[in-house]
């Protein structure tokens, strides 16, 4: 049947139109005649869903379990809710919280810079840079972070002074004592950032490699230099792949900072420990610290969502597709 799906229907089509309507789906072409389709019944869909007894059963059991859990926690006198409430906004706790935030943000920022550098070195044509980068990731992923933190804190045992001057025993221009330079905070920052850089290097490298080689060729054929290709074309596209695991690393870092407690880093866990060593409210203060860790990770998760959206530029089709795939879960489909 000749029904034009787009554009104005030819006179021949128009005369045939009633016939087309009868054939159902073919008349979906719409157009101006769609509104004038009088006499066409509207077949609204108001269907009854099939019963889902399993869903009601699991919901009931889950509610029951949660009520029981809440009850046991609330009535448990060993948890000292009053202590938790009192310390949640304690000055020392908030101070530790601030140190945790600083350590996380700074070490992630330095780690990201180190990671991009190491990744670009790894993918460069210069063999010296390539091996230097490989050595870096190999060493810092190969040793435990805990060991690295203690090492940086005690670096004064190996190198008592740091200075700028002529190497191999020549005169010094500036000289600093390691014990003055390496506070728990700087040791923590060094350990966390350098270790993080090694992991970020792998994430950034994967991101750069995910960019279609044709993008580089197109940019090069416009006459862009290597640096311009990287900055204008490759990295912006690599970001889409780099951001989600980086958000993951950030959230992980929020909690990894607690390792700094072994060198008395004055972050959230360290200050909580100091308090409970005085008042023996071990569980209460661990809960206080945990509440803040959860708050921080929740905020970071929300932030990650917005950063990801920012770097979705030009990929509007993608989120929609992903959303479509997720719909059955989001709505709790069949």
């Amino acid at each position: 049947m000749a029904v034009s799906r787009t554009g104005d229907p030819t006179p021949a089509d128009r005369t045939r139109a009633p016939e087309a309507r009868l054939s159902g789906p073919a008349s979906r072409a719409g157009g101006p005649e769609a509104e004038t389709r009088a006499g066409e019944p509207e077949l609204a869909i108001k269907a009854v869903r099939p019963p889902r007894p399993g869903r009601w059963l699991t919901a009931g059991l889950a509610t029951l379990f949660l009520v029981w859990l809440a009850y046991t926690i609330i009535v448990n006198e060993n948890l000292h809710w009053d202590v938790i409430a009192a310390f949640l906004l304690d000055g020392r706790i908030l101070g530790g919280l601030w140190v945790t935030i600083q350590l996380t943000v700074l070490s992630m920022a330095i780690g990201l810079v180190l990671g991009v550098l190491a990744a670009v070195m790894q993918l460069s044509g210069n063999p010296v840079l390539r091996y230097a980068s490989a050595l870096y990731t190999w060493f810092f992923r190969g040793t435990p972070l805990l060991v690295q933190l203690i090492f940086w804190f005690n670096i004064g045992l190996v190198f008592p002074t740091f200075g700028v001057g002529v190497p191999f025993g020549g005169p010094k221009l500036i000289e600093l004592q390691a014990n003055e330079l390496i506070t728990p905070f700087t040791a923590a920052l060094l350990g966390l950032a350098i270790n993080e850089g090694a992991y970020m290097a792998e994430i950034v490298r994967a991101g750069i490699r995910s960019v279609d080689p044709g993008q580089r060729e197109a940019a090069e054929s416009l006459g862009m230099s290597h640096r311009q290709v990287l900055r204008r074309v490759v990295l912006p596209q690599a970001m889409r792949v780099i951001i989600p695991p980086t958000g993951n690393q950030f959230i992980s870092m929020l909690k990894t900072t607690s390792m700094v407690s072994v060198i008395a880093g004055a972050e959230l866990l360290t200050v909580s420990q100091r308090i409970y060593l005085g008042n023996f409210e071990v569980i209460a203060l661990l809960i206080v610290a945990s509440v803040w860790y959860v708050v921080l990770t929740t905020l970071a998760t929300i932030g990650q969502h917005y950063v990801e959206k920012r770097f979705e530029r030009g990929h509007h089709a993608l989120p929609a597709r992903i959303r479509r795939n997720l719909r059955p879960f989001a709505r709790g489909g069949a």
Partner: peptide, 9 residues
């Protein structure tokens, strides 16, 4: 190019 290679961002 055959596959255009426009900058998608």
């Amino acid at each position: 190019f055959q596959r255009f290679h426009l900058f998608p961002h």
